[in-house]
Amino acid sequence: MKEWKRHAAIVLAAGKGSRMKCDVPKQYLSLKGKPVLYYALKAFEESFIDEIVLVTGVGQEEYCQKEIVEHYGFQKVSHVIAGGKERYDSVYRGICALEGADYVYIHDGARPFIDNALLCRARNTVEQYHACAAGIPSKDTIKLINEQGFVTGTPERKYTWIIQTPQVFEYTLIRGAYEQMYQNMPAVQITDDAMVVETMLCTPVKLYEGSYDNIKITTPEDMVVAEAFLNAEYPLL
C-alpha cells in the first residue's frame, strides 16, 4: 500500500511591485473583481494540496487574513506570516512554518493562472525526481552578453527554457538547502528556489511542463493580458 504524503504550498505575496507603477502591491490589484492573489490561492485550495502558507508583506498579515483568506473562505490556509527582506527570506520563513510536510510547492502569488493539471504534473515529477520546477521552452532566441552589453554567445534555443513556479521539492531537501545557504551565502544573486538547491546541494532540478498562460503579473501590460485570459479562456473564474 502506498504511503500517504503531505503536499503543502507556500504562496508568496510579499512583493512591492515597483514595476507596476502604482501604490497597490500587484498581488492585491483587482482582476475581474477579485485580487490577483485570489486566483493562485483558489487553484491550490481546489487541488490535492493539503496545506497553504501565505507569506505577505510586513504589516499586511491581518488584511490578508480577513479580506482574502476569510472573505473568500480558503480553508487550507494554515498560516499567514510576514515575509523577509529578500524573496529567499520569505521562502525560508514559509518553509519553517511547514513542519511535517513531505513536499513543498513554492509559488508566486502574482501568477494567477495555475490549474490542477499543472499541479498534477508537478506532483508526478517531484515524487520521481525530488526537485522540480515549471518551465516552458523559449520562443525567442536567447543571447548571452558581457557587462558592456556585447553578445558573447547564443545558446541553442532547444536548450533554453523560461522558468516559472510552482517549484517543488522534498521538504527535507529544500530546508537543508536553505539552511546551508544561510550558513554560507553565495556570492551570486539567488533568483529562485531551484538555484538554491542547485548551488548549495548540487542537486539536479528536473523541469516539468508549465504553461504559456502561467504569466507573472509584473507590469501594467500584464494586467491587460490577464484580463484577456480571464475573459476568453477562464469564464468561470
Rank of each mutant, 00 (worst) to 15 (best):
G176W: 05
A101K: 09
Q164V: 05
E86F: 08
A82P: 10
R157L: 11
V168H: 04
Y105R: 12
C120W: 07
G73F: 02
T125R: 00
A134L: 04
E127T: 08
H79V: 02
A82V: 03
Q128S: 14
K76V: 06
G149R: 06
E147P: 03
Y92T: 07
V196M: 07
F113C: 04
K85D: 07
V168Y: 04
W161D: 10
L173I: 13
E156F: 11
F113T: 07
E179I: 02
T141D: 07
Y129L: 01
Y88H: 08
A82I: 01
V151G: 06
G100P: 06
G153T: 08
E179H: 03
K66V: 09
E62N: 07
R121M: 04
G109T: 03
Y129H: 14
A131I: 08
V151T: 15
H71T: 12
M185K: 14
D102Y: 14
T172R: 10
D193E: 15
V151M: 11
P112D: 06
W161N: 14
Q148M: 12
A82S: 15
E156S: 14
C120T: 14
E86V: 02
V91L: 01
G83T: 06
K158N: 11
Y171K: 11
R111N: 10
L118T: 07
F169H: 06
I142D: 07
Q189D: 13
I106N: 06
L118C: 02
Q189C: 13
I162K: 14
C96R: 12
G149P: 06
E62D: 12
I106Y: 03
S78F: 08
P112G: 10
Q180D: 03
A131L: 05
A187D: 13
I142Y: 14
A194D: 09
R123I: 10
Y178G: 12
T141E: 13
Q164K: 01
Q128I: 10
D108R: 07
